[in-house]
Simulated scan of single mutants.
Amino acid sequence: MLNRNRFLAALLLTAAPVMAHQAHAADITGAGSSFAAPIYQAWGDSAKSAAGVSLNYQSVGSSAGQNLVTARTVDFGASDAPMAADKLASASLYQFPTVIGGIVPIVNIPGVASNQLKLSGAVLAEIYLGNITSWNDPKIAALNPGLSLPDVAIAPVHRADGSGTTFVFTSYLAKMSSGWQSQVGAATSVQWAGGAGARGNDGVGSSVRATEGAIGYVEYAYARRNSIPTVLLQDKDGEFVTPDITSFTAAAASADWDHASHFAVDLLNGPGKSVWPIVSATFVLVPTNAKDAARANAVYKFFDYSFHTGDAAAKKLDYVPLPESVKQKVEAGYPGK
């Protein structure tokens, strides 16, 4: 009995530092972008033990993320659509980017494999405007000489929830098509010409996979992990580009961070060779007048730790890490620092 008590006492002494660390771990909450959810979850897994910050992140869409942090329901909001300067000021929010990634069209076309189909931004806009309704339409065929295109109806799928991914996708279409710009525009939620709505990347991906002739748009990492066929897109020079980490990195390299208001850099249809045309940073929004200073500092600690140690995790999940100079500007701008 004596030996057993000594063993238990020794075990408690050994576990005490770990238990104390866990007891003092700071809890923070975040919500918003589904595009960014995989990397925040990965960073959260690492930061809990290494930085003593425990993150509870809810993937509810960019619009909800903006609304929740504005209402101070969460410690930070996450959005792929950057907030305008006047809204940041009125809501007392500091905005900064965390990683960069690509948005890709996904398709379910009989007899057409991944990255066989070539599309341009203008044709993509015509599809979502309802002006091109069959996969063997002459405008699609002209971009794809030698590819056998079936006489199958196109079934467009879009996000039904307020989505930063939709903001990025519709911003690209507006840049590539004057008709899209005048008829629909760019926003986290728009009035679609038709098609089916689905919630989140999961909903869009599932709808496309289940529907013959479907086309949708999701983050690249989601499409790759779920083996959903993607397409080639025409770049600024007229060449057709494959969606991958190399073409996303090429887009990020052309970014003009120095002249971006509140870090809202434009990465759509950028110049350069083999540049994927639908690339965006994803953003975090934190209050500049946080009522709980300890929780606010825990948010900064979480992102500081992630910026310094999380590039490998970002690359593994097919994101492009921020340039070091941008990370330094972000950290220098933290409210109260």
Rank of each mutant, 00 (worst) to 15 (best):
N3T: 05
N5S: 12
A9C: 09
A10S: 11
T14N: 03
A15T: 08
M19L: 15
Q22C: 09
A25C: 13
D27L: 13
I28N: 09
G30Q: 11
A31D: 13
G32C: 12
P38M: 10
Y40L: 15
Q41E: 15
A42F: 08
S46V: 12
S46F: 09
S46I: 08
K48Y: 13
K48G: 09
K48A: 15
L55D: 05
L55W: 04
Q58R: 14
Q66I: 15
V69L: 13
T73R: 14
D80K: 07
M83Q: 14
K87L: 15
K87Y: 11
S92Q: 15
Q95M: 01
N115V: 02
Q116L: 05
K118I: 02
K118M: 05
S120G: 03
A122R: 09
V123Q: 08
Y128A: 09
N131Q: 14
N136F: 09
I140K: 09
A142H: 06
P145T: 08
L147K: 06
D151E: 08
A153T: 12
A155Y: 00
H158F: 04
A160C: 04
F169Q: 02
K175R: 00
S178T: 14
W180I: 02
V184D: 07
W192E: 00
A193C: 00
A198S: 12
R199Y: 09
G200N: 09
G203W: 12
V204L: 07
G205L: 03
S207W: 00
S207G: 00
R209S: 01
Y217S: 12
Y217F: 14
V218W: 03
T230E: 11
T230S: 10
K236A: 13
D237A: 14
D237F: 04
V241R: 05
D244I: 06
D244A: 07
I245E: 06
T246A: 12
T249P: 04
A253P: 04
A253N: 14
A260F: 08
D266N: 13
L267C: 06
P271H: 10
I278C: 00
I278Q: 01
I278T: 01
A281C: 09
A281P: 07
P287N: 03
N297W: 00
A298R: 05
F303Y: 15
F303R: 07
V326I: 14
K327I: 11
E331Y: 04
E331M: 15
G333P: 03
P335F: 11
G336P: 00
